[in-house]
């Protein structure tokens, strides 16, 4: 597949658009269908497309595997961190109402931040799964 001109050109144009759409789904998820889980899988499908067309090495240059491992853990940490932050501010675990001056603003901030954590973990884990599997295919 590495020499197929049509695939290479289309992938080059399509991957950034898919990533842009993933970011839209992530940050506009409060008002339109979307959220962290959806954005995470859409983002990872863009990276998968890139890796399938340009090869695993090119994709690894784009995103090093260490960054993915850190990203996967960081997402859960952000999620749990919001819960702890709301406990420190005097609420219950994961009660976002205390995060800002009014409960609704607090809820909104909490939802956006935890969706970010979810998106980070899901995207990182999905790409990491693919990289781990794909490395087994390479002839040794």
């Amino acid at each position: 597949m590495a020499n197929d001109l049509i695939l290479r050109v289309i992938t080059k144009w399509l991957s950034p658009i898919i990533i842009l759409f993933a970011l839209y789904v992530q940050f506009h998820g409060d008002y339109s269908p979307g959220g962290g889980f959806q954005a995470g899988v859409i983002f990872s499908s863009a990276i998968l497309l890139y890796a399938l067309t340009y090869g695993l090495d090119a994709a690894l240059q784009l995103i090093p595997e260490m960054a993915l491992r850190i990203g996967a853990s960081l997402g859960v940490l952000i999620y749990g961190g919001v819960g702890v932050a709301s406990m420190i501010l005097g609420g219950n675990f994961l009660n976002y109402s205390v995060l800002a001056s009014t409960p609704i603003a607090g809820q909104h901030i909490g939802i956006i931040v935890i969706e970010l954590g979810v998106g980070l973990t899901v995207a990182s884990v999905m790409v990491l799964l693919f990289f781990t599997f794909a490395r087994r295919v390479a002839p040794e």
């Binding site: 409060d30 269908p33 609704i104």
Partner: peptide, 9 residues
């Protein structure tokens, strides 16, 4: 209660 119109989110 949440200020978010998308109820699924």
């Amino acid at each position: 209660e949440t200020g978010v119109p998308n109820l699924v989110t």
